[in-house]
Write a protein that binds this DNA or RNA. Structure first.
Lengths: 113, 113
DNA sequence: CCTTCTTATCGTATATTTGCGATATAAAAT
DNA sequence: ATTTTATATCGCAAATATACGATAAGAAGG
């Protein structure tokens, strides 16, 4: 009876969780790292840098793309992917905003637990 | 044949992915938000603020705890949880370091895709 | 047109996560 | 000592995610 209760949470909580889920896999972290270091990138190079089959890498790329974290287009024989920094930085900012809340927290300075 | 290839990735990639996974659920984001705003917290109050059964919330708390993101102790009838800001901020910092890589990225300024 | 090369999608097996009722545990209250 | 109250754990069903081989789609080169 694992009913999906996801939609009963606040929109911003769902959004942040979705972002986290998009990067919650070492392969996707590795892909982002590769893309961050390159000017632009072809999928083939990504496949070679990972211990996964081409089909699996393509699937991970699809997930990153549907999360909005990367953008890409097919250019002839190869497709070009790069990080959508606008989206990426926006989400990183959400974590920063989260940490802002800590100023109200007593546990920050005192150890109450 | 979904063999787990997790261990074939770099240690820091696995660590960052694990952190992301720990917060990759709206319930856990909601829990962290509640804890961040309170001085300290009892699990009971958390359960009331979420659309989930007590057993499920307890499980989410356990996951956050095993990820090191929260710390807590049972104090008599209730147990007290609070965010482990040291760990939390360390992981937020890893995202910041990630964004640092963007300086080498051409896609940051030009749209090559 | 046919072959080659690159990436995407499909189908499917397995693994992991989620959710909850039932139950255990343990301190507090009576 | 028994009951109440709060939280944790167990066991299972359902949902999702992961991985890959097979195959499709489509451009490039012959």
């Amino acid at each position: 009876m694992a009913i999906n209760r996801k939609m009963e949470f606040a929109t911003d909580e769902i959004a942040l969780a979705d972002f986290a889920k998009a990067i919650a896999h070492p392969a996707r972290i590795a892909i982002l790292k590769i893309l961050a270091q390159q000017k632009s990138c072809i999928c083939g190079e990504i496949v070679e840098g990972l211990p996964l089959a081409q089909a699996t890498v393509s699937q991970h790329l699809k997930e990153l793309k549907s999360a909005g974290l990367i953008k890409g287009s097919i250019e002839g024989k190869t497709s070009c992917y790069c990080i959508n920094w606008e989206v990426f930085n926006q989400f990183v900012g959400q974590f920063g905003a989260f940490a802002e809340l800590s100023k109200n927290a007593l546990c920050q300075t005192q150890s109450c637990c």
